[in-house]
């Protein structure tokens, strides 16, 4: 008899995420998956879960859940107050939630996205090999709503990491190392200097599809229309307004604006935790 979680408060945006779905981009299916993948994996490993077991990804305001059986959970990623029936419990370490108790993840105190891993993982129905919610194309489970009931998997009880784990602090400044290409030749030399010297800021229009920025526009050498082409995770696409957009996990698989460079995947976890107005620097490397 597997446990279930009832959603008491869904928060601003809470989704189910795992490692995402790969191998279907040619059909127009985004990769999706946890935006701060290292946080998801660490939370899972602290429980002895498969590192890529499905977790909940919250956005800024947390969520509240009630299990129908006792469960063990870890909240990691963006720090936030965690309570069980109103009593403060540990963030970033395993916590037991008794049957019927209310687990609350409060608003983040830093960062953007808190990951809630549950022993056994969230057992939502996989779609194309993944349980991830894909907000661009609507694949996978819908974002949580109050009253939803989430099935949980059976805890596997693999050896868990010892309790004290180092969680990286959310970034005060986002430094995004990028490799130039594939369309760097569509931009003026001045645009390249601007990109690597100016300070941008995270735009409030950022989401799981892309980290939008505010800052000086990048001037194009060519005003030609780019025929649609495949886009990679971390691609820095420059739309007509000239402000770079870093493609994140729910990004469209093809696009028609030139990509000036690609941010290393390892840097995208910090992008997932950068609140609105965080300074952004692009560096070559």
């Amino acid at each position: 008899m597997s446990a279930k979680l009832t959603v008491v408060r869904s928060g601003a945006l809470t989704t189910v995420q795992d490692a995402g779905r790969r191998g279907h981009a040619h059909l127009g299916v985004p990769r999706s998956g946890a935006m701060d993948a290292p946080a998801m994996r660490l939370a899972n490993r602290l429980l002895g879960n498969d590192p890529d077991a499905a977790v909940l990804e919250t956005t800024l305001t947390g969520c509240a859940l009630r299990p129908d059986h006792g469960v063990t959970v870890v909240a990691g990623g963006a720090p936030c107050p965690v309570t069980v029936d109103g009593r403060p419990v540990a963030w970033g370490a395993p916590v037991h939630v008794p049957a019927g108790a209310l687990l609350n993840l409060g608003a983040v105190t830093a960062g953007v996205r808190t990951y809630l891993a549950i022993a056994g993982g969230v057992a939502a129905e996989p779609v194309l090999g993944s349980r991830s919610t894909d907000l661009l194309s609507g694949l996978g489970p819908a974002p949580l709503r109050e009253g939803d009931v989430l099935p949980l998997g059976t805890p596997v009880r693999q050896p868990a990491l010892p309790g004290a784990a180092p969680w990286p602090a959310p970034p005060a400044q986002l430094v995004l190392p990028l490799r130039l290409g594939p369309r760097v030749d569509w931009f003026t030399p001045a645009a390249l200097r601007t990109l690597t010297s100016a300070t941008y800021r995270v735009s409030p229009h950022s989401n799981r599809i892309g980290l939008r920025t505010e800052g000086p526009p990048l001037e194009r050498e060519s005003t030609a229309e780019l025929p649609s082409e495949g886009m990679v995770l971390g691609a820095v696409q420059v739309p007509p307004d000239g402000r770079p957009v870093v493609f994140l996990h729910d990004h469209p698989t093809t696009g028609g604006y030139p990509v000036i460079g690609v941010v290393a995947e390892v840097a995208l976890a910090s992008a997932a935790q950068a609140p609105v107005a965080t300074p952004v620097r692009f560096t070559l490397g």
């Binding site: 790969r22 191998g23 981009a25 040619h26 025929p227 649609s228 082409e229 495949g230 886009m231 990679v232 698989t253 093809t254």
Partner: peptide, 11 residues
């Protein structure tokens, strides 16, 4: 992992 054709490209 992914072979993604576009209009004039393959990623």
């Amino acid at each position: 992992a992914e072979i993604v054709p576009g209009a004039r490209t393959v990623l």
